[in-house]
Design a protein around this nucleic acid. Structure first.
Length: 116
DNA sequence: CTTTTGACGCGTA
DNA sequence: CTACGCGCCAAAA
């Protein structure tokens, strides 16, 4: 164990771990920033947002499946808000009149839900 | 080394 | 329902 100690079990960028957790979200489902943070561990919901903001186009990360705790798209208009909604609707995710997603229906159940 | 820049969540009124 | 404040931390220049 030649690890410097401190930090989580793995080192590397916090963004990298967040990115990996985000990639676990299956199509047609959405996860909140807080949920991604909780699953990643050791990071705050804020950090997830910061990590998403640092993503590059074509990174392969399903960033569009990350929404806020209310089931709304957090991106500001003109910054990809419409694009995120279009991507989600293409996966079968429905929005209500207020532009919100029912997390009880489309919310991701966590990595355990993907594994029997 | 310092400074800048952000895609949140939650409590309280 | 709205509004405001606080906590939180990293990566890039």
């Amino acid at each position: 164990m030649s690890v410097p100690a401190g930090r989580a079990t793995h080192r590397g960028g916090a963004h990298e771990r967040i990115r990996r957790t985000t990639e676990l979200v299956p199509p047609g489902r959405v996860a909140s920033y807080g949920q991604i943070a909780e699953i990643t561990g050791g990071v705050s919901p804020r950090m997830v947002g910061y990590a998403m903001a640092a993503l590059e186009p074509g990174s392969g990360v399903p960033w569009h499946r990350v929404v806020n705790a209310r089931g709304e798209i957090s991106l500001p208009p003109g910054r990809g808000r419409e694009e995120q909604r279009a991507l989600l609707e293409a996966e079968g995710v429905s929005f209500d009149e207020r532009g919100r997603i029912d997390l009880e229906t489309y919310g991701w159940r966590g990595p355990a839900a993907s594994a029997p």
